[in-house]
Amino acid sequence: MSRENKIMSLREMVQNFVPDQSRIYLEGLLVNRLPMAAVHEIIRSKCHQLRIVSAPNGLAVDQLVGAGCVTEVEFYFLGFMTEQGFASMQRFRTAAETGTIRVKESMGYAIVMALRAGAYGIPFIPLPDFRGSDLLSIRTDYREIPSPYNTNDIVITVPALRPDVLLLHAHSADERGNIFLDEPWPNFTLTTAQACQKVLVTVEEIVEPGSLPVHRITIPHFLVDAIALVPYGATPTALNQRYEVHANHIAGYQDAAKTEEGFDKFLEEFILSCFNQRDFVKKIGLPPSWTRTQSSNK
């Protein structure tokens, strides 16, 4: 049975639930709501040989790869726009180009559907199309098979994804583990939580038990294994309604990550020498607070 109180420190969460060689799914998208505090704690805890499955979360993947925590990255897009232009993921690129990590190329909908299959206990799932690209020549686990219903139709199948661990940063949780994500499009996040075997969530705030009405529960407690209270847990990425992207810090990171030496210096200064996220945020300064809301968006 699940414990009634799932709140613990982020350090305990990582030590208890992220053993070496775990396959981790990173939630968030581009520069929105990445589980950055958890990523930094994984780096501090010196986790090794992690296999990452990622939404387009370039910044998190780049730092984990640069810190030597990763052996495999399964992804469909890594990179993001900033006001300085397109940011390509330089530690990831170097590792991919020199072969120090295994790269599993995929596509958006293939990963989405593989997670859906994982969530619903289906061993594999057919996709409506996708043929014509070179993906099938490098992903031998993606197959072309005749439809069992009309053998003239060929469908692509992808195997279900059941990552070991989901890392997610959210707005609120109660101690049982009910999660509220204050975003207009949380449905895919629920699918990832259903697909992953352990669901680890850092949150901005812990709310009173029973204070989240059912329509504000994005992920129900019985899917959640551990909660850690980490204000600014997505910084330097943004969190809807709370804070903006910490653009200066990201620009500084992009600059540092151009070289291994630069990255190592960054790692020491902003991750290893910080005790926790609070320390990190103190060092880089608070991100700009959320100024645009749905109603006052100019």
Partner: peptide
């Protein structure tokens, strides 16, 4: 593929869009 000169960002939703 095994030792790329330049690793690019990837498909994203690109293949999905191009297909459909």
């Amino acid at each position: 593929f095994d030792s790329p000169k330049v690793r690019l960002p990837g498909s994203g939703g690109g293949n999905d869009i191009a297909s459909s």
